[in-house]
């Protein structure tokens, strides 16, 4: 819904972009997809209890951001966004490695990947 809000009321240059036409697929479409990916990531993170799925959801969020970066990069006619995406991918990879290691460690302890299992620290 955020996206819709954005799309209908957003900054003038977005409107310009839409009306001026980048062909059939405009910045708006890219952004829409990116936002959907990000939102799905958020929803997945909140809704799923499996640690691996949750991690994948965050990856989805990262990739959503990446997609938006590339779209903006294209829109601004510079490569900064693309460079950024490359770094983001690196970070995501590092995080993935970390996540997998952690998941293995945890699985060894509890034989379960349910996030709810880990709630002894509270208050």
């Amino acid at each position: 819904m955020l996206i819709n809000l954005l799309a209908s009321h957003a900054a003038p240059q977005l409107h310009a972009a839409i009306e001026g036409g980048l062909g059939a697929i405009t910045l708006y479409h890219y952004l829409f997809v990116a936002m959907v990916m990000f939102a799905l990531g958020v929803i997945g993170f909140l809704a799923r209890r499996n640690l691996i799925i949750m991690f994948l959801s965050t990856e989805l969020m990262f990739q959503g951001a990446g997609l938006a970066l590339i779209a903006f990069s294209r829109y601004h006619f510079n490569h900064t966004g693309e460079v950024f995406v490359i770094f983001v991918l690196t970070v995501a990879a590092a995080e993935a490695a970390l996540a997998l290691a952690l998941v293995v460690l945890l699985f060894r302890q509890r034989e379960s990947l349910d996030a709810q299992e880990w709630s002894s620290l509270q208050g």
Partner: peptide, 13 residues
């Protein structure tokens, strides 16, 4: 501060 990951995530979100 329930200690549950999802609770925290929901709070944050």
């Amino acid at each position: 501060q329930s200690g549950v990951l999802h609770g925290y995530a929901t709070g944050m979100a």
